[in-house]
């Protein structure tokens, strides 16, 4: 069941098209990763979803909400959250809650609950100007959650953090996943693999690949034969590319990666070649391409 349906979302700026015909289907209860290199259009897409940028065209449709202003249904954490430095953490959360329409008493309760959940309750009464980067990120998550939004939108929630902070925030997202639907952007595949159910790979403003984590792993993985040799044999490399079972050959000085369609046939032929071309093999490995390979292929091709 789709909570949000995004259709043909496009954003032209004066000198470029940042997002082009992006369609997403965000299912209720899922965690969706928008994965892509820097400058791919992730932030622009997210800002349109958060209502801060107007799409050039395309629609964003919330399930069951005919209203155009769906801002109360989303919680938004920008890439660089900026708070009022003169407020305390708790004051900011209460302010955010009240602006989202929570009554006074409830806002305070909710603020305390979230400060505890994010593990920053000791800093509740300190000015935000004294907070560390990790604490600000938690406060950012707390303010995004405070009105129990149907969809949580997080723009690069972990990229500015050190490894420890990164781990902690990812754990937090895993926890939040139980309660709500999440869309987050990242340029790191590992982060997407860690917590997401569905992945959209975006490049130059366009979705180049999408699916569940499992689908991507199963459908797009290809058998690969990796051979480490003592020296490069150009003649043999040339011949390899002519075989029907070979999909792609990539070689560095010492390593040859052969993506193949038929593993058994490939293995037999290549082993024969190794003998006839007298290749000095150090290792011979049959395996599958990883999601990493797919991601790199998709964002560089």
């Amino acid at each position: 069941m789709s909570l949000v349906t995004v259709t043909d979302l496009t954003k032209h700026f004066a000198d470029n098209t940042a997002v082009n015909n992006v369609s997403l289907s965000i299912d209720k209860g899922k965690c969706i990763a928008l994965l892509g290199p820097n400058g791919a259009g992730k932030t622009t897409t997210i800002k349109m979803l958060a209502g801060l940028l107007k799409p050039t065209f395309g629609t964003i449709q919330f399930e069951g909400s005919e209203e155009r202003d769906y801002r109360n249904l989303i919680g938004y954490l920008p890439q660089y959250p900026a708070f009022y430095r003169w407020m305390t953490g708790k004051e900011y959360l209460v302010y955010a809650a009240e602006l989202s329409g929570l009554p006074d008493g409830e806002a305070k309760e909710k603020a305390e609950e979230l400060l505890k959940m994010m593990g920053i309750e000791e800093a509740a009464k300190r000015r935000i100007s004294t907070y560390s980067g990790g604490m600000k990120q938690r406060l950012g998550l707390a303010q995004a959650m405070i009105h129990d939004p149907k969809l949580l939108i997080l723009d690069e929630p972990v990229s500015a953090l050190d490894p420890v902070g990164r781990y902690e925030v990812l754990e937090m997202i895993r926890k939040l996943k139980e309660k709500t639907t999440i869309l987050f952007s990242t340029h790191i595949l590992h982060d997407a693999e860690e917590v997401s159910d569905d992945i959209y790979i975006i490049r130059n403003g366009e979705i180049v690949l999408s699916g569940t984590l499992q689908e991507l792993q199963e459908e797009h993985q290809q058998p690969v034969i990796v051979i480490e040799t003592a020296e490069k044999n150009e003649e043999w490399l040339g011949q390899l590319e002519t075989y029907a079972f070979v999909a792609n050959v990539a070689s560095t000085r010492a390593e040859i990666r052969i993506e193949v369609n038929d593993v058994d046939e490939a293995r037999n032929q290549i082993l024969k070649d190794i003998l006839s071309f007298n290749i000095k093999v150090k290792t011979f490995k049959v395996g599958y391409t990883s999601l990493e390979d797919l991601f790199i292929k998709k964002v560089t091709e």
């Binding site: 938004y76 920008p78 959250p81 900026a82 708070f83 009022y84 955010a96 602006l99 989202s100 329409g101």
Partner: peptide
């Protein structure tokens, strides 16, 4: 300039 406005205006304000 600081970005505090966008966090407030992402709410129904």
């Amino acid at each position: 300039a600081s970005g505090t406005a966008s966090m407030i205006l992402a709410r129904p304000v």
